[in-house]
C-alpha cells in the first residue's frame, strides 16, 4: 500500500482527523531525536524538547505552507527549540556555537575498538557529540537526516556556503582524529 505523503497527512489532520498526527510523529521522531541528542548532548533534554516541538508543530499546522516541505519546516522548529534550550540553560554560547571562521579541534579521550568496522561509526557518533552545537547539528542533518546543504541552510538560517564550510570543518576534525590515532592502518 502506498504511504501517504506528509502533505496528504497534514490535509487529513486539518480536516479533523487529528489521530493522523501520530503518523508524522512516527515518521520524524527518531530523526529529530538524533539531531537533538547531538545538539543538546543529553537524552532527557532531547526527548523533552522533542515533545514541545511536536506540540508546536501540531498547534501551528494551519500556518504550514503546503508548497514547502514539512521536514524542513519541522526541522526549523526543532533547531530553534534546541537553541532556545541551550540559551535557557545558560550554557556558554561561545563554547556551544563557534563560528565557521574559527579553528575546530576535537579533544577525545581515545578509546576505540577497531575489530569491527561498525564500531568506527559508533565511535564517530560519539565524537559528533563533542562538536559545538552548530557543527554537530549540520553533521546530524546531513548524515542522519539526509538533508541537502540547501535544506540545512534553510533550517539554520546560514548561507549554503557557510553550511558547507561547517560540514567540511567537522569532517576534517573527525578525519584528523583518525589520522592522529593511526586508525587508518588498523582499519584498512
Amino acid at each position: 500500500m502506498k504511504k501517504p505523503t506528509d502533505t496528504e497527512i497534514i490535509e487529513s489532520i486539518l480536516k479533523g482527523n487529528q489521530s493522523d498526527f501520530s503518523i508524522l510523529v512516527d515518521r520524524y521522531k527518531n530523526k529529530a531525536f538524533s539531531l537533538l541528542r547531538k545538539m543538546l548532548k543529553n537524552e532527557f533534554d532531547a526527548e523533552e524538547v522533542l515533545q514541545d516541538c511536536f506540540l508546536k508543530a501540531f498547534n501551528n499546522l494551519n500556518s504550514f505552507r503546503k508548497d514547502s516541505k514539512f521536514s524542513t519546516w519541522f526541522y526549523k522548529i526543532v533547531y530553534n527549540s534546541a537553541l532556545t534550550k541551550l540559551s535557557n540553560k545558560r550554557w556558554k554560547t561561545e563554547s556551544e556555537m563557534i563560528s565557521a571562521d574559527e579553528e575546530l579541534q576535537i579533544h577525545s579521550d581515545f578509546s576505540y575498538d577497531y575489530t569491527e568496522k561498525a564500531d568506527l561509526a559508533e565511535f564517530l557518533s560519539k565524537q559528533i557529540e563533542k562538536l559545538p552545537a552548530n557543527y554537530a547539528s549540520v553533521i546530524a542533518m546531513f548524515y542522519l537526516d539526509s538533508l541537502s546543504c540547501e535544506e540545512i541552510s534553510e533550517v539554520t538560517g546560514n548561507s549554503v556556503n557557510n553550511v558547507k564550510v561547517i560540514l567540511h570543518r567537522s569532517r576534517n576534525a573527525l578525519r584528523d582524529l583518525i589520522i592522529k590515532n593511526n586508525l587508518m592502518k588498523e582499519i584498512l
Partner: peptide
C-alpha cells in the same frame, strides 16, 4: 562511516 550511523530511538 558517518553514513552508517544509526538513528537514535526515542
Amino acid at each position: 562511516n558517518l553514513r552508517l550511523i544509526k538513528e537514535e530511538e526515542t
